[in-house]
Design a protein around this nucleic acid. Sequence first.
DNA 1: CATATATTAAACCAATAAGTTAATTAACTA
DNA 2: TAGTTAATTAACTTATTGGTTTAATATATG
Lengths: 108, 108
Amino acid sequence: MTLSALADPTRRAILARLASGEASVSELAEPFDMSLVAVSKHLKVLEKVGLISKGREAQWRPCRLEPKPLRQVDDWLENYRQFWNGNLDRLEDYAALLQKGGKNDPTN
Amino acid sequence: MTLSALADPTRRAILARLASGEASVSELAEPFDMSLVAVSKHLKVLEKVGLISKGREAQWRPCRLEPKPLRQVDDWLENYRQFWNGNLDRLEDYAALLQKGGKNDPTN
DNA sequence: CATATATTAAACCAATAAGTTAATTAACTA
DNA sequence: TAGTTAATTAACTTATTGGTTTAATATATG
């Protein structure tokens, strides 16, 4: 679910924008060449998987980044990180490591 | 692309399997309750984004995990890692700054 | 050669995703 | 109260996705 939400470039751009602070729906929509409604739907997707939360301030719904799902992706990646930053070269070693501390898939 | 490929649980399970060593298409398909053809298509998706590569050995196509795209995801996550492994909740601090009319740089 | 095995290709189908426009709800403002 | 702004809901269209079954392509072996 989280990874599907992250699969869309518009949604990733929204997250990047929110990394520099809260923004309302129309502020978030402004850079994109699509309707406000479309952006609102993207925000709903992000909200459903917990990547953002929305507040209420008069008629605005300030959105903010919620990092927990991203941290879960990071945790999931941990299973594979040994493949590129490790000193290991052989698959058998990876297997041993994964047997020992492998995490299950937290992202679906 | 990469994230869309990772969005499917079957494909993530395939990657997890390949983390413990090469496997043929039918070996990879065995655990799943779907046709071999379906798994073959999943492998094609993974191959297209570079998450796996296929060799040739007689009539078998041994698949192996290719870590580069995963490392790119890891690099992308780096932009957000500050939000959860820092010693302070930057988002809440940033919100507080905005309330006071503070400046606009979340990275210092 | 004939047949079995491993895999891919082609054609098809149902469900989902991403977008649209039009209508609706809610809150502020003159 | 009337009108404007912010955002969501509803209904719809089109493209993509994930699966199916059947057919084709290689490769190995009796």
